[in-house]
């Protein structure tokens, strides 16, 4: 997507003298994606993460190259099941937290198989529906 961005307001009538000062265009890919080879887009489905502003239907930009640390929002694969959760690492205990009191969190025990698929870096939420 490309948006042309002007420094000055757009005037009617004569061509704006500001036209000479355009700075190209805003490239949202550049702004939202840090490492294109490792970045994937997924769609949020449930309501378990509304507390951090992730709603059903939002597009989530996931960067696999970022190291998941305590407090990051991640796409986790717990025993083969994909979900978006907050990663909590306390001492040696790993928990996948939901951001909605109606949903439970999951303590990851040793016999469970946890893979962090990637780190969520942006959520794109639609505000206007046509």
């Amino acid at each position: 997507m490309k948006l042309t961005f002007y420094n000055e307001g757009v005037e009617c009538g004569f061509p704006s003298p500001a036209r000479d000062y355009t700075e190209g265009s805003i490239d949202l890919n550049k702004k939202l994606i840090l490492n294109p080879n490792a970045t994937f887009i997924v769609k949020a489905r449930g309501k378990s993460m509304t507390g951090v502003g992730i709603y059903p239907g939002d597009l989530i930009i996931v960067d696999r190259s970022i190291k998941p640390t305590n407090g990051t929002i991640v796409v986790a694969v717990l025993d083969g099941e994909l979900s978006i959760k907050i990663l909590q690492i306390k001492k040696n205990e790993v928990t996948l937290l939901s951001a909605n009191n109606d949903y439970s969190s999951a303590h990851v025990s040793e016999e469970m198989d946890l893979i962090i698929w990637g780190v969520c870096i942006h959520s794109i939420h639609k505000l206007y529906k046509k």
């Binding site: 994937f40 887009i41 997924v42 769609k43 949020a44 489905r45 597009l59 796409v75 994909l82 979900s83």
Partner: peptide
């Protein structure tokens, strides 16, 4: 086409 079509991306709960 998970990676090339915005309407076909992976759904995650």
């Amino acid at each position: 086409n998970y990676t090339t079509n915005i309407d076909a991306v992976l759904n995650v709960d």
